[in-house]
């Protein structure tokens, strides 16, 4: 399953997040990178250096957009101005798909700028799926929603997280950006088996996979994206590939960012698992 309708039938390999501290290296050394993921909001401006830098990247690299503020799970309606700006960026980048999170973060027009966890209810699944459909129809590109890491659960939930993810993506007929690090983080914080999660989602809808590092404390794990990927997360990644097949993979590293080469080297470790999967299939 190297490509599917949720990633526009592309066959992207292993990419990394585009981050400002790496610009100089990228423009000077022009390293070979399969693709870059950009945070859409960093480029949803009207002009200036952010767009100049993006255009320079687009001259040489494939870019996929990943958002942090669409808030599909917020009970309020979609922000039309946000959507218009996002569509302008989609046209600029020619991103084959757009991803954002299965979460909420705004209420009554006020933004928390956080990825807040969903109550896993049918009402929430319905409104979330409706907004994903509206977004896809407006942007005219496939949408993939990412499972978030979380630190709290609601009494009102009517199903598990993986059942909720399945309910939403099937109602919306959209893809999944499967973050295996987030599954690991949440499994520790909420006490579930991460492999059970993986085994119970519609793998055929996985458009992309995220890998990342995190920070472990005595009583909880924070999803900090400031460390290398740990072995248990690689094991989850390997299982995800077994289920979904070779899939576009992206390493996130957002804080205490090391050199470009170090980040890229960490990301390319994914190729070992991809090759194992392809060998097994062959």
């Amino acid at each position: 399953m190297p490509a599917n309708r949720f990633n526009a039938f592309t066959d992207y390999g292993v990419g990394i997040g585009l981050r400002i501290p790496h610009y100089k290296h990228i423009f000077e050394k022009k390293p070979v990178v399969d693709w870059f993921e950009i945070i859409s909001e960093n480029f949803m401006c009207d002009g200036g250096r952010p767009l100049e830098m993006l255009d320079k990247i687009l001259e040489q690299y494939r870019v996929v957009q990943h958002g942090v503020s669409m808030y599909f799970g917020s009970a309020e309606k979609l922000n039309r101005e946000h959507l218009k700006k996002l569509k302008q960026l989609v046209k600029r980048t020619q991103t084959p798909w757009v991803s954002d999170h299965l979460c909420w973060g705004s209420v009554d027009g006020r933004y928390t700028h956080d990825l807040l966890p969903m109550p896993y209810t049918f009402a929430a699944a319905k409104v979330t799926a409706q907004k994903i459909r509206e977004t896809r129809d407006f942007l005219e590109v496939p949408i993939a929603v990412e499972n978030v890491s979380s630190y709290a659960e609601f009494h009102v939930s009517e199903m598990t997280e993986w059942e909720f993810l399945t309910e939403v993506v099937e109602r919306a007929d959209c893809g999944i950006l499967l973050d295996v690090n987030n599954i690991y983080v949440s499994s520790f914080n909420h006490g579930f088996d991460p492999f059970h999660y993986l085994n119970n989602i519609p793998a055929e809808r996985v458009a992309q996979i995220h890998i990342a590092g995190h920070s472990k404390y005595r009583k909880y794990i924070l999803d900090t994206h400031d460390h290398p990927v740990i072995d248990p997360v690689w094991k989850l990644y390997a299982r995800a590939l077994q289920l979904a097949g070779k899939t576009a993979t992206l390493l996130e590293w957002d804080d205490h960012i090391p050199s470009f080469d170090e980040v890229h080297h960490e990301a390319l470790k994914a190729n070992r698992f991809i090759q194992q999967t392809e060998t097994a299939i062959a």
């Binding site: 807040l116 009402a123 319905k126 009517e158």
Partner: peptide, 22 residues
Amino acid sequence: SPKRQTLGELQDLQRLMAKTVM
């Protein structure tokens, strides 16, 4: 049957949580 959340209740829950978080 377990009582299911309504859209209005979802909105109220999100208002309450946002108020707490902010």
